[in-house]
């Protein structure tokens, strides 16, 4: 019975990774850059939720929405101020290094504002645990909400891209920015929208993550950020279903590895699996093979 519990917890943790991975994969697919500050946006979102919900006692849903608004604005501002001026830079390294700089900037700004001491996050989920198999299997409310929310977000996002004009614009920009502009698509606005969506989702991921693992520090976002990036690469960067599969596999491997092999080695196992996957299929599980431009 404990295996089933580990599996469910793994799926839940993986769902959080998947939601974060969406931010990486969409930004990579559309702006062709790795936004390494994405993990730190999660941390900022968690602090917003901590202050409004745990300290001020705001309604949990309102608190999550406030956190989303702050993260969405933050994502758009980061793109506008730090990345957009570098879009035509000759070396793609310029924007990558800037992203790392933004990441440190956010961490240190949080240190300055919130201090280095960890704070204890109260779970925003009030749903009571689900008892199955005569009480042998207890699944926490947070776990259930996380998995369900992840599936809803994935579904909505796929419908958004398939059915709306803005979604179609994202597809066009991800394939060819210049050709997209010739169709009358506002490329800058489309990239800004991608950052807005990714960062808004990061806020949800942050709240869910801190509800399950309640210690919040200015560094909380960095490890899940790196793991979610790994999940995005694992599933095939640029692919939305890839982010879901990559995230969940990563979460399950991490939890099972921690339970059955070694709790200290769980991260090493996660990254070892990534290396193996990339050796066998360099473009990730659902990634499309790179095509050379003719």
């Amino acid at each position: 019975m404990s295996f089933v519990l580990y599996l469910i917890n793994g799926i839940s943790l993986g769902s959080v990774y998947a939601i974060i991975a969406l931010g990486y994969t969409m930004v990579y697919g559309i702006a062709k850059m790795l936004n390494f500050a994405h993990g730190d946006v999660i941390m900022i979102g968690s602090y917003v939720s901590f202050i409004t919900f745990s300290q001020m006692g705001v309604n949990p849903i309102v608190s999550v929405v406030m956190s989303m608004v702050v993260c969405t604005l933050l994502g758009v501002v980061i793109e506008r101020v730090a990345y957009k001026p570098l879009r035509k830079a000759t070396s793609p390294l310029a924007v990558l290094i800037t992203a790392i700089g933004v990441s440190y900037f956010l961490q240190n700004a949080a240190l300055l504002i919130f201090g280095a001491n960890p704070v204890s996050f109260t779970s925003v989920v009030t749903l009571s645990p689900l008892k199955l198999a005569g009480g042998d299997l207890v699944i926490s409310g947070t776990t259930i909400v996380t998995i369900v929310l992840c599936l809803i977000i994935m579904g909505c996002l796929m419908i958004f891209i398939k059915k709306t004009k803005a979604g179609q614009a994202m597809l066009a920009v991800s394939e060819d920015k210049d050709a997209a502009q010739l169709m009358g698509i506002n490329v800058n606005a489309t990239i800004a929208l991608t950052f807005a969506i990714g960062s808004g989702l990061a806020a949800i991921a942050g709240v869910l993550l801190c509800s399950a693992y309640p210690t919040l520090t200015p560094y909380t976002g960095s490890m899940p950020g790196i793991k979610a990036f790994t999940a995005a690469v694992f599933g095939g960067i640029g692919s939305i279903p890839g982010a879901l599969i990559g995230g969940i596999l990563l979460g399950v491997i991490e939890i099972l590895g921690r339970a059955y092999i070694s709790s200290q080695l769980s991260d090493a196992i996660v990254f070892a699996v990534l290396i193996v996957v990339l050796l066998v299929k360099p473009s990730g599980i659902l990634g499309k093979p790179m095509r050379e431009k003719v």
Binding site: L171, A172, E175, D176, D178, A179, L182, K288, R291, V294
Partner: peptide, 12 residues
């Protein structure tokens, strides 16, 4: 504008 090299969206 029909660009040089066609530039169709190959995955669509």
């Amino acid at each position: 504008h029909v660009p040089e090299g066609r530039r169709v969206f190959s995955q669509l």
